[in-house]
Every structure is written in structure tokens, then in C-alpha cells.
Amino acid sequence: MTTRELTYVKAFNEGMHQVMAEDPDVFLIGEDVAGYGGVFHMFDGLLTEFGGTRVVDTPISEQAIIGLGVGAAARGLRPVCDLMFMDFVGVAMDQIFNQAAKMKYMFGGNVSVPLTITTAGGAGMSAAAQHSQSLEAWLAHIPGLKVAMPASPYDAKGLIVGAIRDDNPTIVVLNKKMLGVKGPVPEELYSIPFGVANVVREGSNATIVAIGRMVVEAEKAAANLEAAGISVEIIDPRSVQPLDIDTILTSVKKTHRVLVVHEAVEFGGIGAEISSQIQESAFDYLDAPVTRLAAPFAPVPFAPILENAYVPDAPRIEAVVRRLLERK
């Protein structure tokens, strides 16, 4: 494989190009995805390469965008429906959670919905309460949906391909603040299936389970801690639904201390689920309570000083890990 450095958004874009070239049933639809290439450049060049039948601009009608995807998927196509900002799932929610998610089961297995929803989440851009949310726990709570949150350029490409090839409704949540982050990406088409965690870094003193962009912050914290002689293992679940709890448990049984970090609010977040599963399955291995670091229970504030305090970062991750290690 030939590998080179690509940005997160370029890697995602390359995955879209390659999977559309591979499978003529894949099409893309959403607001300003064709002529403009998507407001985050996610879909650059797709209209030129695949034409207006497969790359379609729509009116501002999120409910109809997703509903169209559900119907087309039920007919066997593989729609990629873009929702631009994750906050807009609210407008389309009925089609996502009552329709797409339930058709397989409710119809007794007769209908598959190989629909992919793409969107961008996360805070840190002074975009305020309606353009900054991390709503993955909300989506992951719905049986029938699958939710991935790529945390590197490599994963952005592999997970969009994995999502499109998956026969279920999937949601790929890119992180807005990571769009320009660079990393190694193979030129070839490859796929990362949902439900397979990534051991980002091996370590022995503590485990950090980090979601989405928090993986990057955890890596910075781990580098600092290493300099202080503390060895941290980082697990990126990649998809929060399905959740690869086995990889997390294996790590916990090795390190005995675990911190879960995410951008979404702490209450009812994915960290609560992970923590609960660890305690149920590996209680005897724990030397400290499973700890969470997440956003406070408030909407995302606009002012940079508030937003910085709101979103967890490397220094706070480092501090919490140190506290975890102090417990005897």
C-alpha cells in the first residue's frame, strides 16, 4: 500500500470518490453538496466525477432528504444523505429514528435500509448552541442505528467506506475541528467496519477511552504523562454503536484504571454506558472508580473563554489521569 499524508477532510473525500467509483448504487444527496462540494469541502469534485444523477443538491428540507434516503435504500440503492451540521438531525429526526432505524425489525426482517448519513459535529469554533453539539448518545440510544465518529484521517476514509458498505442505517459524524488535521492515509480503497475499536496507543498504568476529537487531546495528554513516567493506553471505540466493549475490557484488565472522555455532555453520555459496562464486567480488576471527563450539563456557549472551559482538553485529561493514579 502507498501511504501519504492527507487531511481528515481530504481522506474522507477520497473514500467517497473511491466507493462511488466502485459501486454505481451509491449516490449523494444534500444541501450544497454538488455545486459547492459541501460547506466543509467534504464532497469536493464528486459532481464533476459522477454527474448530477449521483450527486444531488436539494432544497433546505432535511426531513425529505433523509426520508428520500430511506425510500431509496429500501429499494436497494445506497444513499449518502448529508446533514451538514449534526444539530440539524433534530429537523430530520422522525425519519432517522422512527423510520430508518426501525424498518428492518418492525417489518420482520423484510426490509434493509443501507442508508448512510454524514454530518459534522463538535464544538470549539464559536458556532454556539445550535451549531456545535455532540449528539451521538442520542442516536446510539436507538436500536437499529449505527454511529461512528472518526478521530483520524485514516479512520475518516475507512469509516465512510465501512458505513456505505454496511447494510444498516449508519451515521458518520465528522468533527469540524479536525477537518484540517493531517495523518497517514493509504491510497487504496479500504474499509473499517463499525464495532472495531482502535488501540491508538499501548500503555500499562491507565486506560483512556476517548471519543471523536478527544482522541487527539488524549494523545497529547499521554505524551506529557509519558515524560513523567506514566504509561497510558488509549482506546478509540471508533463507533459508539455498536460499541467494541471487549477491546476496552481487555485494556482495563491490563491497566486497572480507566478514564472515559467525550465532548458531549456528561449526563447520559456514552461515557455513562461505557462506565456501566466496565463495572458490570470487570469490577474486580478496577483499582479506582471508572471516571468520566465530559462537557458540563449546558448548551454549548459562544464566548471562546466559556467554550474552552466547556470542552475537555489535554491538560484536564492529564490532571484527571494523575488523580486516578493517586488512588490506592
Binding site: 454556539a128 448552541a129 459562544f302 464566548a303 473563554i305
Partner: peptide
Amino acid sequence: GKTTGYCKGRGGS
């Protein structure tokens, strides 16, 4: 994003 703003800096533009 200041405290004296219409939304105390919470809302922005």
C-alpha cells in the same frame, strides 16, 4: 462574547 452582551456572551451573532 462579553458579559455585557445581549446574551451575556452565550449566544453570539
